[in-house]
Amino acid sequence: MAEPLSVDDKNFNEVVIEAKTPFLVDFWAPWCAPCRAIAPMVEELAGEYEGRVGFGKVNVDENPKAATDYGIRSIPTLLLFKEGKPMTQIVGLRSKAELKKHLDATLT
């Protein structure tokens, strides 16, 4: 099963911006409890959308540039990229059903 890739300040461009498919980035940090809550949902979605949407995780504690570049000041934030551009920003803990709606909307 596909797992979210580890994305950092160095490989962000290559992995996310140049991705051939839409790409969802999960911005998180180890101290954030709702981030731990959303992580298993993102992992499940990575399996369910394998081949159609790419998935990655950015630890904002270790990679401040990626978070700063996109003005992220709240975690968990999920940023959904399409053709290298951030299309949808989802802030805070959401249900898996709601996340699927956003992914499906991007794919149509």
Binding site: A29, W31, A33, D61, R73, S74, I75
Partner: peptide, 8 residues
Amino acid sequence: CATCDGAF
């Protein structure tokens, strides 16, 4: 969520 976002 202060514990999530305070560090920013």
